[in-house]
Write a protein that binds this DNA or RNA. Structure first.
Length: 420
RNA sequence: GCGAAUGUAGCUCAGUGGUUAGAGUACCAGAUUGUGGAUCUGGGCGUCGCGGGUUCAAAUCCCGUCAUUCGCCCCA
């Protein structure tokens, strides 16, 4: 029989790593609580049209990376490649932005799908934590959103992360920049790579982060978007910088930072880590003041980001960060022979009813092996019941970390374990 | 979509034409018949990714295929 394996680019997450996932998720939820964001859960499957219009028909995501297929009613559907479009759709569909709230703040955690060639930190099914804040164009909201991402990564004890910040302007100032850029790059056209030559007309911003050496050389001296910001965008950008400085979020200006999705305006940011591979962004996002209206809602300013959970996991693991995540198992109950098994099962129940995570040895083994098993299971204590214990009416509780043991009565057992 | 590397024991890997394919580690048993991070002794472990070809003989060479990994691209 041929073994059935997981689909390419999709992976199983299990112990001990799943512990880290749970920790990250719990941290996200508590952080969202303090920042007053509420969870939103949207379907994994959406009408294809949503992403074509939302993400942008010109992006690689839409052009070649979507899991798109026809359902039995011959409707084209797509497994979501990112979260923002879905949230905007949901929010429009249910009129959530008309509920009278000053701002509507949502977050989500869930799987995303992109049909790409897998490599380190890049999968076909990956998980994103994302935040979307609707209804305000205040720079404080930009700062708040960036702070959320920064806080979470910092609370995971990640070092060597850097927050990159840029403004890519708005529909008002971008055309001017575009003209200048086209003029500049047009002049040095033959020194740029093939792809960049295409970018001159399609998306000149992308030339700025091209890695081809000859392109890099010719970028020096090229017009920079930051010099072309209109009065409004410029002031906004300055305010965001001041707000970040005020709350102690360190950042660097990266005039070459561009985001791959079409919908961004003004603020663009990204957090990178040195501990990943070529895919070094842990998360990124920006402002999208026109997306809500482009998807049929009222004109609503908004900003958000997405964070790749797999990448955060990689970063935490390669930095060997100790987050103090144990197995969670406290007690391992060991009946030394069949004669004590029933009593052991009763003890197990006592512990569990006291909300103590407990497990019981179910096969007869040498005592030494039981201790090994208990350690392997990650238990803090082994509770031994043998002939002697039955005779004396006590239990032997061994602290596997301290390697010490003590006689404890049945009545004291739960309290003893809780207190040690 | 393009480029490169790698697929041998649960894990990490050695073995580049010649008997029954090895090591470390992990596992199991015992030394230690009720006490786990040490030592020693013994033990099991394999469709050598899959399919085909060359050869007296293939884990080893050739072709194909699949998978994984890393990079390009792109992005989380």
């Amino acid at each position: 029989m041929e073994k059935i394996t997981a689909v390419k680019g999709m992976q199983d997450i299990f112990q001990p790593e799943v512990r880290l996932w749970q920790h990250i998720e719990a941290l996200i939820r508590s952080e969202m609580e303090t920042f007053a964001y509420r969870e939103i859960r949207t379907p994994v499957l959406e009408k294809t049209e949503l992403f074509v219009r939302g993400v942008g028909g010109g992006t690689d995501i839409v052009k070649k990376e979507m899991y798109t297929f026809s359902d039995k009613g011959d409707r084209s559907v797509t497994m979501r490649p990112e979260g923002t479009a879905s949230v905007v759709r949901a929010v429009n569909e249910h009129g959530l932005l008309n509920a009278g709230e000053p701002v509507s703040k949502y977050y989500y955690i869930g799987p995303m799908f992109r049909y790409e060639r897998p490599q380190k930190g890049r999968l076909r099914q990956f998980h994103q934590f994302g935040v979307e804040c609707f209804g305000s164009d205040s720079p404080f909201v930009d700062a708040e959103v960036i702070q959320i991402l920064y806080n979470i990564l910092t609370k995971l004890k990640l070092s060597d992360i850097s927050v990159k910040l840029n403004s890519i302007g708005c529909p008002e100032c971008r055309p001017v920049f575009r003209q200048n850029a086209e003029k500049y790059f047009g002049a040095v056209k033959d020194k740029l790579c093939v792809e960049c030559n295409e970018r001159i007309n399609t998306n000149p911003l992308r030339i700025y982060d091209c890695k081809t050496p000859s392109c890099k050389e010719n970028i020096t001296g090229a017009p920079v978007i930051l010099d072309h910001l209109c009065e409004g965008c410029s002031q906004h950008f300055e305010s965001v910088k001041r707000a970040l400085a005020q709350i102690g979020v360190p950042f660097v200006i990266d005039a070459r930072l561009v985001r791959g999705l079409d919908y961004y305006t003004r603020t663009a940011f990204e957090v990178t880590s040195k501990h990943l591979g070529a895919q070094d962004a842990l998360g990124g996002g920006g402002r999208y003041d026109d997306l809500v209206s482009e998807l049929g809602g009222q004109k609503t300013p908004a900003i958000g980001f997405g964070m790749g959970i797999e990448r955060v996991v990689i970063a935490v693991k390669t930095q060997n960060i100790d987050l103090g995540l144990g197995s969670g198992l406290r007690a391992y109950v060991v009946p030394l022979s069949r004669n004590e098994a029933e009593y052991a099962f009763k003890l197990l129940d006592i512990l569990r009813k006291a909300d103590i995570s407990a497990q019981m040895a179910v096969s007869e083994k040498k005592t030494g092996v039981h201790f090994k098993d208990a350690e392997k299971a990650g238990a803090d204590f082994a509770v031994i019941i043998g002939e002697d214990e039955i005779k004396n009416g006590t239990l032997t509780v061994k602290d596997l970390r301290k390697r010490s043991q003590q006689s404890v009565s049945e009545a004291e057992l739960a309290a003893y374990i809780k207190n040690n």
